[in-house]
Amino acid sequence: PPQTPIRAAMNSIKMLRGDLPSSGDQPSSNLATYFKNCTVDPTQGIQKRLEMLGQVFSQKFGEAVGPHCIVYGRERFTLGVRLYYKVMEAMLESEEKRLSVQNFSKLLNDSTFHMSLLACALEVVMATYEESSFKNRGCSHGEGDQAVRDLCFPWILDVFDLSAFDFYKVIESFIKAEPTLSKDIIKHLETCENLIMEKIAWRTGSPLFELLKREHEAGATEQAEPPAS
């Protein structure tokens, strides 16, 4: 039977929590092996970054929704970290098959990669909760709709001071690596992609302009792609 929007949202949250058990708070033994195989073990760097970003996220969440809701921000961050580790492991397994390598030192020591991946995981968590939590838990202080709007993409980019151009890079690989994503969430990520492609990636300060300038100075030798592709 068709579900009410609230029931559908609650089921999505239940499924998200079910797919991300508490054992995922730390890297799995498989993921830890990828870390150890790196020329430079990224484990400590990843841990420190997560601690720092967790504090930033919770603080910004509280500022957006209300100080009494910081605990919900921490809850969402915890789920985001579990999803981040899960997708990271799946991505590395896929890359290992594709490239026949086990040492991903450069990628796993790239701070931008980790921030982009974590931001994407948190965006999935936020989108899953979007329809139900604030309106049902009384966190709104009379401003429920505004709070939900404030947390919508690209809010997470501002929280992490992450460029849209870098965030965009992880989206497709994220969708490929996580087959349990619902149709609604995939649609949401696609909307984020379109927003970035059409607007946000072209804002002042985007790294895209520097890259385009470098390409232009290097001298384009290939023909431009036809509009169809």
Partner: peptide, 21 residues
């Protein structure tokens, strides 16, 4: 995910996107 347009080709992946090839 059948409605999502996958743009990366077979020789492309997260490693290339972050200049780790």
């Amino acid at each position: 995910s059948h409605d999502y347009h996958f743009g990366l080709e077979e020789h492309e992946g997260i490693s290339e996107l972050f200049d780790c090839d």
